[in-house]
Amino acid sequence: MKEYAVYWGCMIPHRLPSIEIAARYVLEKLGVRVREVENYTCCPDPIIGRFIDRKTALTLSARNLALAEELGPELLVLCNGCFETLIEAVEALHDENTRTEINQILEKVGRKYQGAIQVRHVVEVLHDDVGLNRIKEVVQKPSRVKLAVHYGCHLFREPNGGDIWRKPKQFEELLRVIGGNPVLCDHNRLCCGFPTSHVDPEYSLRMNLLPKMRCYKQLKIEAVVTVCPACTIQMETGQRMLRKFGLETSVPIVHLMELMALAFGMRPQELSLKVHRSPVEDFARRVFG
């Protein structure tokens, strides 16, 4: 099995470390060797990064990529936002002039980006490199629950004009192979509203989260599965605020890594699920005991 540099980003370790714990367990169970990128910064956030200043954002991304390059040729990320930021940075830095300009800044702090790293989302690494058969072998407790799939907008980003549905479909296949039952919801592709929540929280709730959560309630969804910590945070904190729109919901929002760890036999109490703001801990105890 290949070795990857792993980049945790900032939302996972700072807001949802249960995803980090779960991912470490899942990767180890599957024999995926990782070396952690250290001393890194935020990717930076794909929305805020655009507001900040292109050169500054690209410099921070290039520094992260340079740190990862020292560890190996492939960088594994567990957040849709980090994935988009870093693949866009790789693409921008293919241009020799841009790379030279950014490297001139990096050189001032003793760093250099060579341009030789490939950024991989955890979904594609698990699906393509580990394989569904290997994953199936490790499953001890298939969940067999009705799940909604929330892909997250940035999962549709595909470098070099590839099929934008490749990773979302892989995500669904991964859920099925661990025993989940993903159901079709009209609003699966709708954004969770996290980016717009920065500037207009009410709009993001009304236009994004409200139709999604209504749909989940009608379908009697037992949990929503994401592959992005930002989507998880938005859906957990947001659904509490939907009362003012007349909707009471309390749906567990769980990251794919957490669901896989539970399916692989990790006990719920080992996952530190109390960091969640939706009833993920109750869901995990009920389904995985």
Partner: peptide, 19 residues
């Protein structure tokens, strides 16, 4: 920068994380 996104931008520039 819009005031709404300023705290995140400031956090990225000072501690290297969104918060």
């Amino acid at each position: 920068l819009p005031a709404e996104v300023a705290p995140v931008a400031e956090s990225i520039a000072s501690v290297g994380a969104t918060a």
